[in-house]
């Protein structure tokens, strides 16, 4: 009796182990090394970065226009109130650049609105805290998300010092114009976090991010690691600041003041 039970448990154990190994064996059978490559049309970088010229892009209206483009390209739901979802939005100086306040700020700077979005940090706290690698840093510096894997714990939202992340508290499709969706891009589902992705899907086919394209040159975009890139040229010439430098996150979004 005792032996029987023991051998049964053993057998059950082997069966369970087999189940765990099977998918991997299948993957190996599929060819081992992945038969994939980058799209030759795509544009690549070591660290994508954005420089926003706030002398040119500084009205709520102007930024809302870009946000509208962004949100319609990515099927971002429109929800009013504290459970809103947004990838790109305008806000005032003292909300945008906390800890860099100045009571006697130049009128022009004070009056401006600033375009806020995910900073695609070089040291992203959201990536550090995510328990499933649902948010990760790509080789090109973009902090992207795999919505399939997100469990909705919202640790990344607590971790982000810039308030760049939104959670789908309810069903996002209830807040989308289903007839006007971008059918080339998915929506999200309830219970996952989302944010700006620097338009990875557009870069992959050689297009610049939607907001950059729509900004009439007020947003520069390029490789921070390439000294000859457009962003490096602009950064050499103009005075720029970043949001919350003290957080040590090294944001990749710069603001020309």
């Amino acid at each position: 009796m005792k032996n029987n039970r023991r051998s049964f448990i053993k057998l059950a154990g082997i069966a369970a182990a087999g189940l765990a190994i099977a998918p991997k064996a299948m993957a190996a059978a599929m060819g081992g090394s992945a038969p994939i490559k980058e799209d030759p049309k795509g544009i690549t970088a070591k660290q994508w970065a954005m420089v926003i010229d706030t002398t040119r892009l500084n009205t709520a209206q102007g930024i809302e226009k870009l946000a509208k483009v962004c949100h319609s390209v990515h099927n971002v739901p429109f929800i009013e109130g504290k459970q809103e979802v947004k990838w790109l939005w305008p806000d005032i100086y003292e909300h945008s650049f906390t800890e860099q306040e100045n009571p006697y700020l130049a009128d022009a700077v004070k009056k401006r609105q600033y375009a806020l979005l995910c900073n695609h940090c070089q040291n992203p706290p959201c990536v550090r805290v995510c328990p499933t690698k649902a948010t990760y840093k790509r080789p090109d510096g973009i902090v992207d998300m795999d919505y399939h894997r997100c469990i909705g714990c919202r640790y990344c939202m607590a971790g982000c010092p810039y308030g760049s992340r939104s959670f789908n508290w309810g069903e996002p499709r209830d807040h989308l114009d289903l007839a006007a969706l971008n059918k080339e891009y998915p929506t999200r589902m309830r219970g996952v976090v989302e944010k700006c992705n620097f338009c990875v899907e557009r870069l992959a086919v050689g297009k610049l991010p939607a907001c950059v394209e729509a900004s009439n040159g007020a947003i520069h975009f390029g490789d921070l690691n390439d000294p000859n890139s457009e962003v490096r040229a602009v950064l050499r010439e103009r005075f720029t600041i970043r949001r919350k430098p003290s957080a040590g996150t090294e944001p990749s979004v710069y603001y020309i003041i």
Partner: peptide, 10 residues
């Protein structure tokens, strides 16, 4: 959590 069915992803 928002997606409890995916909990084991952890």
């Amino acid at each position: 959590i928002g997606q409890p069915t995916r909990m084991l992803n952890v």
